[in-house]
Design a protein around this nucleic acid. Structure first.
Length: 342
DNA sequence: CAATAGGATGGAT
DNA sequence: ATCCATCCTATTG
């Protein structure tokens, strides 16, 4: 015999490759209401437990990090926050928002009584701009969380996560922010468990980045909460919505195909333009700018930590015969073409 | 050397 | 049977 079955790498591919995701019933209809149509009940209990103060403490600097791959966001967020489209000088907002550069000192807004922008606005003019900034940030956070959700195929509300979802989120967060590996420290934990943990608990499990992870989780909880609020209050999202509806595929609940995944990345140049982009969108020609990065993202999505470009490209090549993807007429390195452009 | 092409095989669905 | 993931050999720029 040859030596075929090399397929028992010591490396652990996650035990349950797909883990029963509760997402099955959370598709996201291309219609309009993205996920509010679903049940967002956990938000309530989260509030009951006092996990979410007036408005979730926003960690501006972390949020800044959330946007590492996206610089153009400030420009567009304005539309993303319908609730309080208060005309205001954007420059001011920008200044504020980018206030904290490098570090990740959690800016706690506990006492600030920051609200999504409706009632609690008893403050002076200053509060106004702060609120404005907040809305910008919130809108952006929502979009980023949504993007991550789609990429990881998890729900936005951490309280609904399975153990597998938690691991995915950890991997993703660690990857995005180059945090030291901490996934192991949180094994066997469901989203509910995670939500119930204090910052101290986090630090105990991961002295290195427990606090950061806790902060990020808080952001997610906040995003879920905001989501709920927006849907109930306004019944219509203006900004983030279009980004959502674009979101194609994955509605089916079926495992995503590589070509679909690539399309999704291409749909979000804000986030992934640095690793994959259209060369000619009309013809469906795209270029993988950072093969390693794209492969890692694919691996994340499929729970295949050992994914690399070699394997990813092999899968792409399988599409040649099927007439889904091909090499463009003038073959170039890392450039491919969808046979049926949109 | 990294990308490309494609065969072989095993696993999951 | 389909779609990968993994491994591998050979070729190419």
């Amino acid at each position: 015999m040859s030596q075929p079955g090399r397929d028992h790498p010591g490396s652990p591919a996650y035990p349950p490759p797909r883990l029963g995701m509760p997402v099955s019933e959370s598709p996201l209809p291309a219609g309009g209401e993205a996920w509010e149509a679903e049940d967002t009940k956990p938000c309530m209990e989260a509030m009951d437990r006092g996990l979410l103060p007036g408005l979730p403490g926003l960690y501006l600097s972390c949020i800044d990090m959330l946007l590492t791959e996206d610089s153009a966001w400030l420009v567009k967020v304005s539309e993303a926050v319908p609730a309080l489209a208060v005309p205001l000088s954007r420059g001011e907002a920008r200044g504020e928002a980018r206030g904290e550069p490098e570090q990740c000192p959690v800016i706690d807004s506990q006492g600030l009584g920051l609200s999504p922008g409706l009632e609690a606005l008893q403050g002076p003019e200053e509060e106004r701009s702060l609120e404005q900034v907040q809305s910008l940030v919130v809108g952006e956070v929502l979009k980023d969380v949504e993007t991550a959700c789609k990429l990881l195929n998890i729900t936005p509300d951490p309280a609904e996560w399975s153990c597998g979802n938690v691991q995915k989120w950890l991997l993703w967060t660690e990857h995005l922010y180059r945090l030291p590996q901490a996934g192991r420290a949180f094994q066997e934990l469901t989203g509910k468990d995670l939500c119930a943990m204090s910052e101290e608990d986090f630090r105990q499990r991961s002295p290195q980045c427990g606090d950061t992870l806790h902060a990020h989780l808080d952001i997610w909880k906040s995003a879920a909460w905001m989501k709920e609020r927006c849907s109930v209050g306004e019944a219509k999202l203006t900004g983030g919505e279009d980004l959502w509806s674009e979101a194609d595929s994955s509605c089916t609940g079926q495992p995503i195909h590589l070509w679909q995944f690539l399309r999704e990345l291409l749909l979000k140049p804000h986030n992934y333009g640095r690793c994959i982009r259209w060369v000619n969108k009309e013809k469906g020609i795209f270029k993988i700018e950072d093969s390693g990065h794209v492969a890692r993202l694919w691996g994340l999505r499929k729970n295949r930590p050992a994914m690399n470009y070699d394997k990813l490209s092999r899968s792409i090549r399988q599409y040649y015969k099927k007439g889904i993807i091909r090499k463009p007429d003038v073959s170039q390195r890392l450039v491919y073409q969808f046979v049926h452009p949109v």
